[in-house]
Design a protein around this nucleic acid. Structure first.
Lengths: 170, 170
DNA sequence: AAAGAATAATTGACACTTGAAGTACTTGGC
DNA sequence: GCCAAGTACTTCAAGTGTCAATTATTCTTT
C-alpha cells in the first residue's frame, strides 16, 4: 500500500485507469445484484398476496391482465410476446384458466391455426377484483419513495431498458 | 415544469391533491412494470449465456457463487437464506452439482443434522471460468449507462430495497 | 434422564419455465 | 393443383420454485 514516490509518475496513470475500470466493474455487478434483489422481493410479495387472497398465481394474473386490455382477445403467440415467455408456457397457463372457466379459446375462422383467447364474464369479474387490490399492494410497496425518486427511477430504468433491449430482433 | 408563480399559492388543493394521487398510483405501477421488464431481460440474457457457454443454469451458478466466498463451506440453510429460496430447492440444486462433482456435502461432526457444502477443486476451477465471463456480460449489458447513472440507480434501489425489506423478519 | 420443543435437511405434490420436437394449417412458387 | 416453406399451437422432458409433511438430531425443561 505504501507508495514508492520515485516511481510515481511511471505507475500512476496506469493504476488510475485500472482503478477506475475496476470500480466500474464492481459498480455494474453491484447494480445488477441490487436490482435483482429488489425485483425478486416485490415479486415474491405480490405472488404471496395473490396466493393468499385469491388462490392464484402471478403468471395467471399476468395473462388475464393482458386479456383485459384486449376485448377482442389475443392469439396465443401474442400472449407469448406480451408476457415475454415461451409459447409452450402459455399453453399450460391457458389450459388451467380455461379449465376454471376464466378464459376461452375461440377458433378464428379466417385462420384455423390460431386461437383467440378471451376472458369470460366470470374471468373479467374476478380479474377486476384482483387488479384493484394488486394496485394497492404495489403502491404500498413503493410508498417509501417520493414521487421525485420514482420519476428518477422510471427515467433511469427506461434508459437501461432501451440499451438492454437492443440486439433482440434484427 | 414551468411554474406560474402568480397562481402558486392559489391552486385549488382539492383537485391538485387528487391529480397528484392519481399520478402517483400510475407512477408506482409503471415503475414496477419497468423494473420487472429490465430485470427479466437481463436475467434471461445471463441465463442464455450460461446455458450456451457452460451448459449450466443461473441457480447453479448462484449456489456456486455463494460457496466460492465461503471457503469453509455453508450449511444448506445458509445457502437457502443467501440465495433467497426455500430449503427444498437448495436440496435439489445441490444434488445436481454433487452428482457432477462440483460440490460436496461434508458432515459436521459437532452437529450431525447439518451438512457443510463446499466447492470441489473442479468446482472452483469451473466457477472461476464462468465468473469472469459473467462479469463481462453484466458490464456489457450496463455499458449504456454512465457511472453517474449507475451510481444513482444503486442509490435509489438501495432506498427501495430498504423499504420493501421491512416487515419481513420482526 | 425422559418428554417435549426447536432445528436441519429431505421428500412429495404441484406450478411455472424453457427448449426441442411434433402436428395442423396457410402461403407462395412451380 | 401441388409441394416446400413457414406459421400457430401443443406436447414432453428437465430444471426451478413453493409449500406442507417427515425424519433425524439437538436443546430445554423438569
Amino acid at each position: 500500500m505504501a507508495k514508492d514516490k520515485s516511481t510515481l509518475k511511471l505507475v500512476e496513470p496506469h493504476v488510475d485507469a485500472e482503478t477506475r475500470l475496476h470500480d466500474d466493474h464492481h459498480l455494474s455487478v453491484r447494480l445488477w445484484l441490487r436490482m435483482l434483489a429488489c425485483t425478486n422481493r416485490v415479486e415474491n410479495l405480490v405472488r404471496q398476496n395473490l396466493q393468499a387472497r385469491f388462490q392464484t398465481t402471478l403468471p395467471r394474473f399476468d395473462l388475464m391482465a393482458q386479456l383485459e386490455r384486449a376485448p377482442d382477445g389475443l392469439k396465443m403467440s401474442e400472449l407469448s410476446q406480451r408476457m415475454m415467455v415461451t409459447g409452450g408456457n402459455v399453453t399450460g397457463i391457458t389450459d388451467g384458466l380455461e379449465k376454471e372457466g376464466l378464459v376461452v379459446r375461440e377458433v378464428d375462422p379466417s385462420d384455423r391455426r390460431v386461437f383467440r383467447v378471451k376472458l369470460t364474464a366470470e374471468g373479467q369479474r374476478q380479474f377486476r377484483r384482483m387488479a384493484s387490490e394488486h394496485e394497492q399492494w404495489v403502491i404500498g410497496l413503493f410508498a417509501g419513495l417520493s414521487m421525485r425518486q420514482k420519476n428518477q427511477l422510471v427515467e433511469l430504468l427506461g434508459e437501461l431498458k432501451q440499451h438492454v433491449s437492443q440486439g433482440c430482433e434484427p
